[in-house]
């Protein structure tokens, strides 16, 4: 290779002075100078931990494997794919009895269902509200817009703890509200939104529906904002032309509004899917994955393994599963939206 390259270089030298390697790579060198600080930092605290994580997932890394200077230090042992096996076969209770309600496939299934049920509500509500707000001649538009952005403005952690408080079984706001509406039909002891174990519908506990309500409240304003931006860029002439052709409002919505919203809504939906899939705060603070781990999602389960049980090796293996699953999801969504092309930008 080297000789071939140098002969080419010699040949070209005769007619045109060829630039040296140093000059040719100048832009790359400038670019890497700019990238250098970020790459160094990310290599140490972003990329290296991912590699380290894979090694950890093959060991029995436990709480006493952290600090080599303490008396009860226990060096992590290589155990092969034992951690992965324990997770996939739901045998974590053999390691820690706290984990006997751990079910990997149920958690994964619930996580996917949780994501899609939420995002469907977010997107459809977001579009409907944006369309309503965009009707010309609507009074108090500005006031409504200012109010509707509030769920985005508050920190998610605070929102989650507030909803946790509102779903309280005794004096929570939701129960007090229902009491006014249902009157005597309201159960004496109140509705135990978050702790009621037996499933109420579709095999899901009441806490799922409580979190669905909270997360719909949290999620639709973002979709409304994206949809409003797209709506305002639809030319009015299209609607006028459609009216001349005798289209009803309903026709116009399906044939003009929705197709023209799609380019903006598809990426926003994908963003929503990824965010909802990993929505730690809402699950961890409202239901805590309960009752009996029925509403656990992957992130909260991983967090409990690492923080609550200090099972670092198993937690690392679990995180590797999260990587793989999210990789699949993002590959699917990237294909759908062809986001990959827009990177060239």
């Amino acid at each position: 290779m080297a000789s071939a390259e140098s002969s080419v270089e010699r040949a070209s030298e005769s007619d045109l002075p060829r630039q040296s390697w140093w000059t040719r790579t100048r832009t790359s060198r400038t670019a890497y100078t700019y990238l250098f600080p970020a790459l160094i930092v990310m290599a140490i605290i972003t990329f290296y931990p991912i590699v380290y994580q894979f090694w950890m997932s093959l060991t029995d890394f436990g709480p006493s494997s952290i600090n080599p200077n303490v008396a009860n230090y226990k060096a992590p042992n290589y155990v092969g794919f034992e951690n992965y096996r324990l997770i996939l076969q739901d045998k974590l209770a053999t390691v820690d009895a706290d984990l006997n309600s751990f079910r990997f496939w149920r958690t994964l299934g619930f996580n996917i269902w949780w994501t899609f049920s939420n995002v469907i509500f977010h997107v459809s509500l977001g579009i409907v509200i944006a369309v309503m707000l965009n009707v010309e001649g609507l009074w108090f538009k500005k006031i409504y817009r200012a109010i509707y952005i509030l769920p985005m403005v508050l920190p998610q952690l605070v929102i989650a703890t507030i909803w946790r408080n509102m779903f309280d079984a005794k004096e929570g706001a939701v129960n007090l509200f229902l009491k006014i509406f249902l009157g005597p039909a309201f159960p004496e002891a109140g509705i135990d939104w978050l702790q009621r174990v037996d499933p109420v519908a579709f095999g899901l506990p009441l806490s799922y529906f409580a979190m669905l309500i909270a997360n719909i409240w949290l999620g639709w304003p973002f979709m409304t904002i994206v949809a409003t931006g797209a709506l305002q860029s639809i030319p009015k002439e299209l609607y006028e032309a459609a009216s001349i052709d005798g289209a009803t409002g309903w026709n116009k919505f399906w044939t003009i509004t929705l197709p023209l919203l799609r380019p903006a809504m598809v990426p926003a939906t994908i963003l929503g899917i990824i965010q909802t899939f990993n929505l730690f705060h809402v699950i961890y603070f409202i239901s805590g994955g309960g009752p009996l781990g029925q509403t656990e999602i992957l992130v909260t389960q991983a967090y409990k393994l690492i923080n609550g049980n200090s099972l670092f090796g198993i937690g690392a293996a679990f995180s590797v599963f999260i990587f793989i699953i999210l990789g699949c999801i993002s590959a699917i969504t990237a294909r759908i939206s062809r986001v990959a092309e827009s990177y060239d930008g």
Binding site: P49, Q53, M56, F61, V299, A302, I306, S319, I322, L326
Partner: peptide, 12 residues
């Protein structure tokens, strides 16, 4: 990736 997915190695 959620931040929690690299919590174990970062802490260790």
């Amino acid at each position: 990736m959620p931040g929690i997915a690299t919590l174990a190695p970062l802490f260790a």
